[in-house]
Design a binder for these strands. Structure first.
Lengths: 231, 231
DNA sequence: ACTTTTTCTTACCCATGGGTAATATACGGG
DNA sequence: CCCGTATATTACCCATGGGTAAGAAAAAGT
């Protein structure tokens, strides 16, 4: 990422840079392999020999990049969490009322659950981590949960969502979404986006205050987005 | 094993019976302890010494009742599955249209998820079992899934449920319910029945075909929401 | 009381797998 | 061409924990 000064030095830092990049690439290759194996077979059934073997190296070579097996697990998890934090920030700063934001969040989260790094967020057991990393994981889960609850509570407040208990509704939605990480497989009949948009629609259908039935306590501004909730 | 002469002894089988019952009770005590520990700490972090210690016995004593650790795990799972199979049969043979049956199923399944034996159905990893037992588990999960899909498909057919994809809807519902096994704790603010009825209501709100302008979907029998709920 | 059967304990085996030490090999820099 | 560093390998350590063998202790049967 650094600019090379081509005149004075052809590339004094180039080797260094390329070397560091090579290292980072290898590190990520380890994580990609590990996350795959962990999901396929489960953390405890995967040995570091297994991981190394699939990379055509030997176990101790892994220790050039990681200090322990559980650190590998943690980094796998962090890779997925990073993405979640990104789109949460994006949605949070974006436009739309609470219901729209909720739909966006469901859509993005559902898509993430169809990926390896997404599935690792729900299929890895945090108790396999060190106490410190468990704290980090707990904090991250709390962040996600808070976001769901916030949108739900805001939606109830601004009238875009029917009165409901945000905590319970958040659990219900999160459960549906997390479950995707357990059953979805890429070679199935549904694309990730298709699943995500169906879930975004279905999970909010029961919540949306889209027509003032008897008592319309708030402004029913939203028409009905039947499908394809991407905006 | 041999038949005793029944006349000479008032109850020659009594000792035998009480002995067998005592044995069964001990066996179940092992399972109760094991399931608790497995849920608390995770299967792989629980040693048979841990299980034995909590029962005030020693590890080899366990082998009088079980052949292996994974057999204990399987029996724990089977205990929970048995209950599910029972209420599925009951609901299936009971009355009501598809939507009603679906609500009953959600209610019963949700309640089951708040118990140890219920949570073990979703929090245990079937890959820890032998190949044969994995098959049994897969078959059981399939049964549950089929039931959900059937009620959904039937409901779409008889008009009590909005048109939807039964497979996807079943996944969404099952995900919400299974997730209960991960977050519910008995000492929380919600009773098992309250959670179950709220879920039964919320999860079907978006599905119910309320065209004939019947009243809102489920009439909750009890609810203790933190905030004042409308229903 | 004596034998038999069941249950449980003490003492052990040993495969597994995470992690380390010592060492070899590739590789960029001078 | 040689040196230093990063990277990888071979060979090993050893704690863990599932599982077993042999025999004591407690019931049950006679």
């Amino acid at each position: 990422m650094d600019a090379q000064s081509p005149e004075t030095n052809p590339s004094p830092w180039m080797p260094f840079e390329s070397r560091r990049r090579a290292r980072d690439e290898k590190r990520e290759a380890v994580l990609r392999t590990a996350v795959r194996l962990f999901l396929e077979q489960g953390y405890h059934r995967v040995t570091l020999n297994d991981v190394a073997e699939r990379l055509n190296i030997t176990k101790p070579a892994l220790y050039n990049y990681f200090r322990s097996k559980d650190e590998i697990l943690f980094e796998c998890w962090a890779l997925g969490q990073e993405i979640v934090d990104e789109f949460i920030a994006e949605i949070d700063n974006g436009g739309g009322n609470a219901l729209v934001k909720l739909r966006k969040l469901i859509q993005a989260y559902a898509e993430q659950m169809t990926t390896d790094s997404g599935a690792s967020l729900v299929r890895f057991d945090a108790r396999d981590l060190t106490a410190e990393n468990q704290k980090i994981v707990r904090a991250a889960k709390k962040r996600i949960d808070r976001t769901f609850r916030k949108y739900l509570a805001d939606g109830v407040a601004d009238g875009s969502i029917k009165p409901c208990d945000p905590k319970l509704a958040a659990f219900a939605i999160a459960g549906s979404l997390n479950w995707i990480g357990h059953w979805y497989q890429r070679d199935g009949a549904w694309s990730a986006e298709a699943v995500a948009s169906r879930f975004a629609a279905q999970l909010t259908e029961g919540l949306a205050q889209d027509r003032p039935r008897k008592r319309g306590p708030a402004t029913p501004k939203k028409s009905r987005p039947a499908k394809g909730g991407r905006e």
